[in-house]
């Protein structure tokens, strides 16, 4: 059963998986070639961005066909809805390992090829593990969002947008606490769930 779900996921996602994998392989090389001890490393932001995009792509393709058929096929299969969702989630997670593996290969190759100045070390394994962690967090979030109906997705997106706009407006007009800012701080700092996307993401570091 899982094999078939995995095959279905591969069939739905292979066209987006290919460029993601190439990008994940190339990004550490780009990072290593643009390394500077003193300057801000632009590529540091590319890693979490790629993790978010990879999570988004895998989650979207996991549900794409079911959404097109209004979930009728999934509901007509002789398994519980939660089982089907778990199988889908697991299949997407396995597919996600392809760009993660590519990033690990790319960073390992870059680490071997690079000749960093004294005091600078390459971190291919920890960078790959961090990328894996960030991709899975992003995938889980997007997966939960895409598993809902389109109407619910729009309501959620609208609600989030309205919250940010309103709290920013209220804060700037009446000088009260900006709740959206507080929420972002909570989400992006330890032990917030999205903390993994922040901080320094460099293959070569001191």
């Amino acid at each position: 059963m899982f094999k078939q779900i995995l095959y279905a996921h591969w069939k739905a996602s292979h066209l987006v998986l290919l460029p993601l994998t190439l990008a994940a392989f190339a990004l550490p090389m780009y990072s290593a070639s643009h390394f500077s001890v003193t300057d801000f490393d632009v590529s540091s932001g590319f890693f979490p961005a790629l993790a978010i995009v990879a999570g988004f792509a895998m989650a979207a393709t996991a549900w794409q066909w079911d959404q097109q058929g209004k979930q009728i096929y999934a509901m007509s299969l002789p398994i519980h809805g939660w089982e089907y969702a778990l199988l889908r989630m697991a299949a997407g997670s396995v597919a996600l390992m392809v760009p993660v593996a590519a990033l690990w290969l790319g960073s390992s190759a870059s680490a071997i090829a690079a000749s960093p100045p004294a005091g600078v070390v390459a971190y291919p394994h920890s960078l790959s593990l961090r990328f894996l962690n960030a991709s899975v967090v992003a995938y889980a979030g997007w997966f939960a969002l895409f598993s809902g109906r389109q109407r619910h997705q729009l309501i959620f997106a609208g609600g989030v947008l309205a919250f940010f706009v309103l709290s920013t407006l209220l804060a700037s007009t009446f000088g009260i606490v900006d709740l959206s800012q507080k929420l972002l701080e909570f989400l992006l700092s330890s032990p917030g769930p999205f903390e993994v996307f922040t901080g320094s993401w460099r293959l070569l570091d001191v």
């Binding site: 095959y7 066909w65 007509s76």
Partner: peptide, 15 residues
Amino acid sequence: PHVFPSFRIDEALAF
């Protein structure tokens, strides 16, 4: 029709 449109017939049957 509810089966996945990007499948071939043999893939749909196997699934």
